[in-house]
């Protein structure tokens, strides 16, 4: 209740304009990588992304998760992103414009987190694409272990695991694989990716500036969603090691990893958790994996899928096989992620 009293400070102009203005600022920052296409003003397209004969990769979702989603647009990753309002899926029209821009004649794969709103809008967009003769396949990212038990894994939310699923699909498309193959790669990445998050403070909508959930000054929530959706349990905030142990045990309880297994690691900050803290979490993740004899192929630590100014973090593991490794290592160049080249 305390938290509800005070309002957040944001450096912004009129809240109604925040998304178009953000997009403007983003294009101004990355004119070598991003441009806008279509009339909706919400289809951010890679300058050198879509190519004839290449499967188009379309990503998207609500805003407030920056650098997701438009930050992953660029050569070797996504061809276009549909940018929704804060925490609200883009509309079918906006997704369709992104898909049209991304289409190189070989069809498009639509990748997004598994939320009712996104599913509804992207499904309608896929139908509209079909009417235009663009074959669209959809893969909903479902990495958030906290959001449903294993038996109902298809109901899970998509959180920071987007990062790996997008990367893998983008690489498969960049390598010239077919629509079936790209869809398959995205699905394999999705099946091999699990995440667990923890939140310690709320974020707020630009329109209300009120924290979008209440959390006590000494509390944390294990498993909180990236829009502030309640998670698995509330508890007193604990040490970085203990929190990481809990996140990891929920992931490892489900992901079969043993001596010789290989993973990629993403330690993701939700917005206002310092990089220093994320490195503390990564220290423990590496230790736990090391003790199990699991090889860490690559690690990313930083803000890759945020909830505006929410404080907290998530850990994501991608279990690798040879093909996923090849795709993960494939070069890409986007505002939020550069690999190889």
């Amino acid at each position: 209740m305390n938290a509800m009293d005070h309002s957040t400070k944001k450096l912004m102009n009129a809240p109604e304009d925040i998304i178009p203005e953000m997009i403007e600022g983003m294009l101004a920052a990355h004119p070598d990588m991003l441009k806008l296409e279509g009339e909706s003003g919400r289809a951010v397209v890679a300058v050198d992304g879509p190519r004839d004969g290449k499967v188009g990769i379309v990503i998207g979702g609500g805003s407030g998760h920056e650098p997701a989603f438009a930050g992953y647009v660029g050569r070797g990753l996504a061809d276009a992103a549909a940018v929704g309002n804060v925490f609200a899926s883009p509309s079918p029209e906006q997704v369709k414009q992104a898909a049209m821009a991304a289409d190189g004649g070989a069809g498009v794969v639509l990748l997004y987190g598994n939320y009712t709103g996104d599913v509804l809008n992207f499904d309608m967009a896929a139908e509209e694409c079909a009417e235009l003769g663009i074959e669209a396949r959809s893969v909903q990212v479902i990495d958030d272990v906290a959001s449903a038990p294993k038996e109902r894994a298809h109901e899970r939310r998509g959180i920071a695991g987007d990062f790996f699923v997008f990367k893998i699909a983008g690489a498969a498309a960049d390598l010239g694989r077919s629509l079936d193959e790209v869809e398959d790669a995205a699905k394999r990445a999705n099946a091999a990716t699990l995440s667990m998050g923890v939140a310690v403070s709320a974020c707020s909508m630009p329109q209300t500036l009120k924290p979008n959930f209440e959390i006590g000054p000494d509390e944390m929530e294990i498993g909180m969603g990236i829009h502030g959706e309640p998670g698995m349990r509330r508890a007193k905030i604990d040490t970085a090691d203990n929190v990481t142990d809990e996140l990891m045990s929920l992931i490892l309880g489900e992901m079969e990893l043993g001596e010789g297994s290989e993973v990629a690691v993403l330690v993701n900050g939700l917005g206002s958790t310092a990089l220093m803290e994320l490195y503390l979490i990564n220290r423990r993740v590496a230790k736990i994996l090391g003790e199990k004899g699991v090889k860490i192929h690559h690690t990313w630590v930083g803000e890759y899928c945020t909830s505006m100014e929410m404080a907290g973090a998530s850990v994501t593991l991608l279990k690798l096989d040879d093909d996923l490794k090849l795709l993960l290592d494939h070069p890409c160049r986007t505002p939020a992620l550069t690999v190889g080249t």
Binding site: S91, G117, L120, N121
Partner: peptide
């Protein structure tokens, strides 16, 4: 609602 708003409410 359908073309500009998105979210769950746009389509529903």
């Amino acid at each position: 609602l359908m073309s500009e708003i998105g979210g769950s409410m746009g389509p529903l």
